[in-house]
Design a protein around this nucleic acid. Structure first.
Lengths: 235, 235
DNA sequence: ACCTGAACACCGTTCAAGT
DNA sequence: ACCTGAACACCGTTCAAGT
């Protein structure tokens, strides 16, 4: 469909500078943000950089590495902009919300966490959660479990938001889409899905971001109750 | 590498029965379980079913649908085998563990939840969590948030386990792998990663399954503290 | 109605050839 | 050292032709 040869003044004709890892990653992020994960191919990327597809391999090992670098890049930037927050509970909420907003803008990162585990991005998140937990006074033996719980929750929401971003948002707006899902839910078998039917009416009005914080609060409340309160006699 | 024509008695020569949706899904699950998500192609699937690749499209719309049906299939089977559990807290733990074990056997389902959202599988999980929450006495306005928190946490762990399953498990065993990661962590910059370094030593001995339950317990403790206890005077 | 398998469009990746 | 772009292997999907 689209002509291969650009004859107009579309400002993509020739490259002024040399290629670089940095430039490739920047262009990749641009495509990912604007058109989604499925739009990023070495061919489109090369076209945007006015070069051949093979040239990219001189700077980047393969597509996996490119995606990893891109998400590390965005996440590092996000974390660098994080305000210092002395109160540990607030520090965790601030970090979690920063991640939520980051994924709102760059939905493709949401699934990236479920590729190579234990990559740099993951460590940054773990560290950002773990520090405040320590300052909170969570006992050493419980630190790993508490950090892991918060991490898994955050990644779970991230993945769901990434999935939602892939939906046909162009056709319907969010409002209409939720109303549509709610409608389908309310028509489910009352015998098999009593609970889903019940929360269907809450779906259209609900706020993802607010619900996300509610989950963080729930886990923090659990940590407080289990590890930061004088334990009762029994057991 | 592998010869296309099987001359031995490998029992795949000709199909005895007609093709069917059920048979296709069963074969797909077999490939997914044994060789992972990347091994499932319409060509290998067709070969295993001793038919042409195009034949599958008569019974199944496309690969997305095939994956959705396959995961619905396994999840339904898992949920049907769930024991009745009157105590709501235990019911949630039993369901969560059943999902954990399911993903241990069928890791590819872990990422499936992050494709089409609000598919049947998801609804089954939501219902399985929400019922007990209601019986627990969680107030109506909080049901959605509590259910969503548990769901997101479970899906987060599911996705991570799916990612872990894609690792080079053939080369190293789990023990050696964790020791290796722990070693790398302990060599990180103490300034930038004090927390990660600290939990590095806990990594080799840690049990995924146990840690998963600890997270469920934490969220349940939070629900208990926030919604099922007489609130104090202040606020 | 159901199946076959070649053909199409599109990928990631490689590599001989250029500068 | 860095880039180019054709070529390779492999996909999901379609479809004319068979039974």
């Amino acid at each position: 469909m689209k002509p291969r040869i650009k004859t107009t003044s579309q400002r993509a004709g020739r490259r002024t500078d040399a290629l670089s890892r940095e430039k490739i990653v920047e262009a990749a992020i641009g495509i990912l943000d604007a058109e989604g994960e499925s739009a990023l191919t070495f061919r489109t990327l090369a076209a945007r950089l006015s070069t051949g597809a093979g040239a990219i391999y001189w700077h980047v090992a393969d597509k996996d590495e490119l995606l990893a670098i891109a998400s590390d890049h965005v996440l590092t930037r996000t974390f660098d902009a994080l305000p210092q927050e002395p109160e540990p509970g607030r520090a965790i909420r601030v970090l979690a919300l920063a991640m939520f907003d980051m994924i709102d803008i760059h939905p493709w990162i949401g699934t990236q966490f479920f590729r190579e585990p234990w990559q740099l991005s993951m460590l940054l998140v773990v560290e950002g959660i773990g520090g405040p937990l320590q300052r909170m006074g969570v006992p050493d033996e419980a630190l790993f479990d508490c950090g892991s719980a918060l991490l898994s929750y955050i990644l779970g929401v991230a993945g769901q938001n990434a999935a939602n971003a892939r939906l046909p948002t162009k056709i319907m707006d969010r409002e209409a889409f939720l109303a549509d899902v709610a409608d389908r839910w309310s028509k489910l078998d009352p015998q098999q899905f009593p609970f889903v039917r019940r929360i269907a009416e809450q779906l259209p009005g609900h706020e993802d971001r607010q619900q996300f914080v509610a989950g963080i609060d729930l886990i923090l409340a659990g940590i407080e109750a289990r590890y930061l309160t004088a334990p009762p006699q029994a057991q």
